[in-house]
Simulated assay, not measured.
Amino acid sequence: MAKKNIPYDQKYYDPEIECMPRPELEAMQLERLQEMVQYAYDNTVYYKRSFDEAGVKPSDIKTLEDLQKFPFIDKKTERETQHVGSFFGEMCSVPEEDVIFMATSSGSTGVPTVSPFTQEDFDLWQDTEARLFWQAGMRPTDRYVHGLNFALYVGGPDVIGAQRLGALAIWVGAVPSDRLIFVLQQYQPTIIWTSPSYAWTLGEKIKEKGLDPRTDFSIHT
């Protein structure tokens, strides 16, 4: 649900969370950590096995610092456990029918790692994206062009975060530069998301067309 009722001059997207006093924040973090670790132990093959092998149990977490007692995972662990025993592997804590979205890493350093999302996961993720966009200066009055590839890796769908805070989201994706320049001229977006190197290249192509990136477009971010 888009939060279009947030005052546009409000500094924080969610002041209750973002401005929470440190003691309250850490108390909430501890409570959620305890719930998460217990859930992981009860519902995943990998975490139950690794906790048992390390001689720790969820009830051992009494403070945030107690997390140091638990096994550490990395991408190697993810690769070795995915697709083992089930489609999503030994780290997934829900049945496949509860998964509504699947992302992967880019695979640039090896086999792509899989990240399944339930609806709750996806909604929480997009709230986080909306908060990041808000902090960067995006408001519901903005027009946002998503000029990045839509792919399995998680960078793709984050355009939904812009929609979540109420901005006009223009789903463009990876298109030829001439087409993207046309979109920028036609719809005059105020914000674009793309890679820094491509933004530079796009600016050079705009100048080749006799246009000025600073004055002929509305983009300010």
Rank of each mutant, 00 (worst) to 15 (best):
47 Y>P: 06
2 A>W: 02
8 Y>Q: 14
53 E>S: 12
152 L>H: 14
103 A>E: 09
112 P>C: 15
145 V>I: 08
15 P>D: 03
137 G>P: 00
11 K>P: 03
40 A>P: 00
62 K>M: 09
183 V>D: 02
60 D>Q: 12
62 K>N: 14
124 L>S: 03
99 V>K: 06
37 V>G: 08
155 G>T: 08
24 E>S: 13
200 W>S: 10
126 Q>N: 09
187 Y>S: 02
12 Y>M: 07
21 P>W: 09
10 Q>R: 15
123 D>S: 07
91 M>P: 06
9 D>E: 13
8 Y>S: 12
2 A>R: 07
162 A>H: 05
105 S>W: 11
8 Y>G: 05
93 S>M: 09
35 E>Y: 12
152 L>C: 10
63 T>C: 13
28 M>V: 11
139 R>C: 00
26 E>T: 08
173 G>V: 03
175 V>I: 05
172 V>D: 00
136 A>P: 03
125 W>D: 01
121 D>T: 07
84 V>W: 03
27 A>F: 04
194 T>E: 02
186 Q>S: 04
33 L>P: 02
86 S>Q: 06
219 I>D: 01
96 E>T: 10
182 F>K: 11
74 D>H: 13
94 V>R: 03
104 T>M: 06
156 G>R: 01
66 D>Y: 11
52 D>F: 01
27 A>C: 03
120 E>L: 11
117 F>E: 07
173 G>I: 02
197 S>D: 02
88 F>N: 11
56 V>H: 12
12 Y>H: 10
171 W>S: 10
64 L>A: 09
20 M>E: 11
113 T>F: 07
38 Q>D: 12
136 A>F: 04
132 L>A: 14
164 R>C: 00
178 D>W: 01
171 W>N: 14
176 P>K: 05
101 F>H: 11
51 F>V: 14
15 P>G: 04
124 L>A: 05
12 Y>R: 12
58 P>G: 14
215 T>H: 10
77 T>M: 09
8 Y>M: 07
169 A>R: 00
143 R>N: 06
143 R>W: 03
155 G>M: 06
153 Y>P: 03
94 V>W: 02
201 T>I: 04
200 W>Q: 11
85 G>S: 09
43 N>W: 04
120 E>P: 01
217 F>G: 06
72 F>R: 15
14 D>I: 00
90 E>G: 13
3 K>R: 08
220 H>K: 14
86 S>V: 05
85 G>L: 06
31 E>Y: 00
207 K>G: 00
68 Q>R: 15
218 S>H: 09
1 M>C: 02
67 L>S: 13
129 E>V: 11
